[in-house]
Amino acid sequence: MPTFFEKKQLVIPGDLLAEGEYFAGDNTYKEKNKIFAARIGLADCTNKKINIVALKAFYFPQMGDVIIGTVKQVGFSGWTVNIKSPYIAILRASDVLSRSFKPQNDELSQVLTAGDLIVAKVASFDRYHDPQLTVGEPGLGKITRGQIMNITPTKIPRVIGRKGSMITNIKNETGCQIILGKNGVILVTGKNPKDEELAMAAINKIEEESHTSGLTDRITQFLKEEKAKIEENNNE
């Protein structure tokens, strides 16, 4: 039962990846016992399961994902939120106010207005309903400070690193708080803008070089060098 690709080979939709007893993983599909690629990406095989790490994709909501969204519209009993996916998310007023919502008492636009950024969790989503968000957990809610950046959603796992090694690394080196939205939006909050910019530069570097190995070490080095430069400037 052969596979027709090398590890981390660039494949395009329609490429035949394997024949026989293999399972179709991410971004692949099975037809007549053959596995084909469905997206541009790098192919990989573990335990007879064939996955493709896509180089370009969009965010598809999943229950339990933490995401960062922009409030689009204030409605009668809640808000619509743009979460950079094919579906527009709904945030209900009763969820934010954590008590029953009475239109005569509460003015929704005073809580959140169009343009506000929120960290939220996908509470429910299926084929028939738009994703519903919740902010009723610690760490979720309106964003008041920090900087926002966007990367391709498929590269979020790379920014997290193996067991979170990459992200802890950046957090420790820069002293910034970083929230990674599964939809590719990242919030960086630090003590001063310079720290934030350093963290963002590191994340940009990860996105650009996300398919190379030994990246964690190089990012550590990059952060140390940059920090040394900043200190030099301060001393002058």
Binding site: P13, N27, E31, A38, R39, I40
Partner: peptide, 8 residues
């Protein structure tokens, strides 16, 4: 394909 849509 460039838009990142899954395709057969």
């Amino acid at each position: 394909a460039d838009a990142g849509l899954p395709m057969r």
